[in-house]
Amino acid sequence: MTMVDAGERMGQAGQAERSATVPDRGATSTLESDAGGRPVTDARPGAAPADTPPGPADTVLATRDVVISYSGAPAVRHVDIDVQRGDVTAIIGPSGCGKSTLLRCFNRMNDFIEGAGVTGQVLFEGIDIHASDIDPVELRRRIGMVFQRPNPFPKTIYDNVAWGPRMGGYSGDMDELVERSLVDAALWEEVKDKLKQPGHSLSGGQQQRLCIARALAMSPEVLLMDEPCSALDPIATGRIEELIESLRGRYSVVIVTHNMQQASRISDTTVFMYQGELIEVGPTARIFTNPEKQQTEDYVTGRFG
């Protein structure tokens, strides 16, 4: 259980740092069950609150002793992390370290991979997302995802953004939602006069921002980004980084990146993984200047990976 303890400590450290924002959110929340500002862990069978140490109040996403394996071979081992609400959390590590696998586990995208299995708990707002009565579809509506390569639908720019809310039964003003999502994704000015053109007509960087707008249109709690800039040139990458900067605070962002400079520029917390294991997690500034573990130091100073 030492790993869990470590996770707890790290979580608490995060809580202390951001505690100023917590009452704010909790107080304005109108939901009864949410009155204490604490995540709701109700009495679902198999996920009794007693045996799930609840994360700190502003932990939006947490893992508890998570092991992810493909056909029995573990790709991620015993990972405990707490993702803070409103933060940008970067997961770094050499290729094949399991960082994307871990990310895809947060919204159960690994469900589509034959032979993938998860043990341990992934808690979203304190709720075990692998519990039998949880609908992965509902989960993914609240935890959005942006992929390595821009993958707009073969539809118009407008429909790319509107499709998700339409499928989700959105009853508000669709034009307004599309505009707001595109504004939030810093794409509105470039596309406002060509909303009826196909999404594929945009440049790579614009396509990726369209994919971000598509995810934001679902007003997700968390936005997962799997190396979103790996297929983009430096200028397009810079724009995506600015965009992520602007999302900080409103959305909780978890970004997987192989680019250490990127992680150090944009993230509040950095998670370092190596060979499927969580090596170190902490405030980004500390991880990059004063890491505790030798492996972390070797990696961030470019000695391997």
Binding site: R25, L31, I127, I134, R142
Partner: peptide, 12 residues
């Protein structure tokens, strides 16, 4: 500020 997601909302 948004209300937090509840388990009910994630249910099937």
């Amino acid at each position: 500020p948004r209300p937090r997601v509840t388990a009910d909302q994630l249910r099937k």
